[in-house]
Design a binder for these strands. Structure first.
Length: 203
DNA sequence: TGCCAGGCCCTCTTTAGGGCCTT
């Protein structure tokens, strides 16, 4: 598989359109089946973190207050990622914060997102849940740290991506997994998965 | 005033509703 960046945001809520902002971002670079580089930073967007989010993430208002400005962090992380494909767990969530925070520093996204949640629903249909934590347990992946911290979640999503790649190679006999294949799989109706994979499988 | 996310996906569907995921 080509080089990809797996990212994760912690935020003050679910919707940038409702005023929610990022509080932490992490990106790990996956190359040749392993993580080869990492970026992580808290970020100060100048907004208050609700108490239940503090409890969920362990990221407090005091921690964010002493963090670098959000714009500075977004410039750094977007430079770190560059134009390589981005993967995230429930990518529609991370993509909307990525776009919203980049827009605040007059930048725009240069690549499509790949979603490990959509891939997992198709490739691990028997998993009891497709939450990141449940998939880590289901696939017996290492717990990289505290859930709901950006770097730990990005590392675990990267492990999940590599496990999905292995599933495609071993169970589905796809000789060469590409980002293009992942993009097709995450959009294909479940009933058409086998037909989709057949086009990428050598006899 | 009152409301407040949104995309995916299943089904007792398609003239819709509700659960799953992300924080």
């Amino acid at each position: 598989m080509e080089v990809v960046a797996v990212i994760d945001f912690e935020t003050t809520g679910l919707s940038p359109a409702q005023g929610d902002r990022a509080t932490e971002v992490a990106a790990v670079i996956v190359e040749d089946g392993r993580v080869v580089d990492r970026y992580q930073s808290l970020m100060n967007a100048g907004v208050r973190i609700p108490a239940f989010i503090e409890a969920l993430t362990g990221i407090s208002n005091a921690m964010v207050r002493s963090a670098p400005p959000a714009g500075e962090v977004m410039r750094e992380v977007s430079d770190f990622v560059g134009d390589i494909p981005i993967v995230a767990h429930n990518a529609s969530f991370d993509a909307k914060f990525w776009d919203a925070e980049l827009a605040r520093v007059q930048r725009s996204r240069r690549q499509e997102f790949v979603c490990s949640l959509l891939l997992s629903r198709r490739l691990f249909p028997l998993a009891p849940s497709h939450k990141l934590g449940a998939l880590v347990e289901y696939a017996q992946l290492p717990v990289a740290g505290r859930y709901h911290r950006a770097l730990a979640d990005a590392e675990m999503a990267a492990s999940l991506l590599l496990r999905l790649e292995e599933e495609l190679r071993q169970r589905h006999r796809v000789p060469q997994v590409s980002v293009e294949l992942l993009r097709r799989i995450q959009r294909v109706p479940k009933a058409q998965l086998q037909k989709c994979l057949a086009a990428f499988t050598r006899a």
